[in-house]
Amino acid sequence: MNISNLLRSLLFALLITVASNLSAQEKVEITEADYGNTKVEMADTMRSNGKIYVVVAVIITIFAGMVFYTFTIDRKIKNLEEKEND
């Protein structure tokens, strides 16, 4: 059996499934009016006094820390690989 043919048909089947799902969806469009609809409550105060930036800063700091840590692990594995190949 040719493996790349098999994989290709598998991928094709999946794409067909996903595509047919997308077309089957009933959508209610979001319009410009929805962006300006002030009747719907949003966190406008938090945005106008700038506190939202505090939230963004906190999340970005945590994310940066995790990314840094992941890079550290990556480097450690690289060192292990180099040792293994010697």
């Binding site: 979001i30 929805d34 962006y35 300006g36 609809n37 002030t38 009747k39 719907v40 949003m42 939202i52 939230v55 963004v56 999340i59």
Partner: peptide
Amino acid sequence: LLFDAPRLN
């Protein structure tokens, strides 16, 4: 978190 989002019920 910051960009405009549609205001939906």
